[in-house]
Design a protein around this nucleic acid. Sequence first.
DNA 1: GACCAGGCACATC
DNA 2: GATGTGCATGGT
Length: 230
Amino acid sequence: MHELVFIYEKLYRFFGPQNWWPGDTPFEVAVGAILTQNTNWSNVESAMLNLKNRNLLSPSTMHGLSASKLATLIKPAGYFNVKARRLKSFLEFLIEAYGGSMENMAREGMLQCREKLLRVNGIGPETADSILLYALQKPIFVIDAYTKRVLSRHEIMEQEKSYAEFQALFHASLPGDVNLFNEYHALFVRVGKTFCKKKNPICGSCPLREIGGQAKRDETTRYPELTPVP
DNA sequence: GACCAGGCACATC
DNA sequence: GATGTGCATGGT
């Protein structure tokens, strides 16, 4: 068993399912993925409500708004001028490449779709992968600042390693399962917020307190077999 | 008032 | 290729 499986089970047992992005439409998830760049989710929710309450949360209606009008609406999400442009870029792409349909996007091969998303201005690796995983149900692992921080604090991979290197570790160590990737990424965010804070980490009560360090360096380390997570 | 948050593009060396 | 900077709101 790889230690990443062990860590997942520890986190899942401690926090339970996180239920990220349930019930939203794929389009809403994609918009949320752009709005949440370097931003607290509660601010994103407030921006999304501004759109929802005016019945503007659809590809065609949002595409019809000017960038400045859009910026006003998404103001609570921060970086509103930048994000308004990024949303417009994404909408242009969605309409041009897929006729404005996330369902059409989902029909395309995962890696080909990822390449195209990465060419859209304002969509980097994390946003692209968040759209693929959480909106389109594709088995790709999302790496974020929390994932890097938690793994580096436990000496599993250095924080300075690239996005692709972190992602490759997950893809090599875990089965390519959408639900697993969905929960696991959300659990990293949860443990990062709760215990593995930037400035004052609370390690004593963290479910991962025994992971890494000397145990990591000791090649004889064996992780106990755990029952599968439902 | 400082610090942080589910990044990214762009300039510069 | 690496390193630095601008972008901005709202909660703690």
